Amino acid sequence: MIANKVLNNNIVSSIDEDGHEIIVMGKGLGWHLKPGDLIDSSKIEKIFRMDTVTSSSKMKKLFLEVDMSSIAISSKVIDYAHKYLNKELNKNLILTLTDHIDFAIERYKKGIPLTNDFKVWIQKMFPKEYEVGLYALELINEELQISMPEDEAAHISMHLINAQLNGNMSHTSEITTLLSSSLQIIQIKTGMLIDESSWAYERFLRHLLALAQRIIAKNENKTANNALNETIRLQFPKEHEIALAIKNYVLKEFDFDIAEDEVSFLTIHINRLLSEV
């Protein structure tokens, strides 16, 4: 493997057998190395490949700005996630996760914690991703001899969730916003605090997650069982009013019109949720 460009003492750009740029990392790998020199394969710790020239350029820029330990930790977390989740993850995850972890470590050292208000629902809705987040947190704390709070595991989990949603971080934001706002609407309308440990709460979160994914995909379903919907509306008038408030919120904030059948399903879930308060 020949060095194409030496980025620093630990990171070197090269070209693979298909003519695509790769980033090669290893402690001391670039020391005294010049373009055209043979790379010492015994020092190679990790090879990174991106799909586009733009992504490769972003990676080189990022890797020059962050600590090598952040890159190494992110790489280990992604390798672990691939095996544990057994899911396809967007290649840009190495960029977003490295950037996040490096900033999180810097923030921690400056005594600026970042809490995660969605930790509970992430644990419930994405337990496997949360387990990977805990693995990442343990890795960070062990390798850097620090003690970051568990909220950081939730933040890392969100990056893993996002990497399964075509890499658009706004999708994760849309999901969390819909969940939190829907629960706020219920609590404001009823004046009740929701029992987050209940089975009804978990089922409601799962239903909202499926709704959020349909919103992201703009998959509107206009079919309606008018007779059943009318029965549910009459049987649960208070819950139906709350479901309509959520429908209006979604229409305003996401430009997505929830079908009447969906309003009825929300009504039933809200009834179960309030029954366990």
Rank of each mutant, 00 (worst) to 15 (best):
Y80V: 00
K238P: 09
G19Q: 06
K110S: 12
A259T: 09
E150S: 14
L97K: 02
K238Y: 10
W199Y: 10
E262S: 15
I112V: 14
K61T: 14
E196A: 14
N168G: 01
E21I: 06
L160K: 05
H240I: 05
F63K: 04
A243C: 06
L89W: 02
A154I: 03
N141F: 05
I15D: 08
L183H: 11
A259Q: 14
A72D: 05
E45W: 13
A154E: 02
N221V: 15
N4V: 02
N248S: 12
A163G: 04
I122G: 03
Y84S: 05
I39F: 08
F103P: 00
E65K: 15
K252H: 10
V120N: 13
N92H: 11
S56E: 00
I11W: 05
F236T: 08
I146Y: 02
E174W: 15
L234C: 10
L205V: 01
I71H: 05
Q164C: 04
M59C: 09
G28N: 06
A72W: 09
F254T: 07
K124V: 03
E17Q: 08
V12Q: 03
L134G: 05
M25D: 02
D117G: 06
V6M: 06
A212Y: 00
I73R: 04
K76P: 08
L234V: 09
R203E: 13
Y84C: 00
I122W: 01
I122T: 08
W199I: 13
A153T: 02
K91W: 07
E17A: 12
K27C: 02
S57K: 15
N168Y: 15
V263P: 01
D257R: 14
A210Q: 15
I185H: 02
D117Q: 12
M169D: 04
E239F: 04
R233A: 01
N4R: 13
K189G: 08
E253T: 13
E17G: 09
K76V: 07
K128E: 15
A104D: 02
L251K: 15
D51K: 12
S182Y: 08
N225Q: 07
Q187A: 08
E276C: 11
A210E: 15
E253P: 01
F254N: 11
N162G: 10
S55W: 03
T54M: 10
D18C: 05
D255M: 12
I22F: 10
I78Y: 00
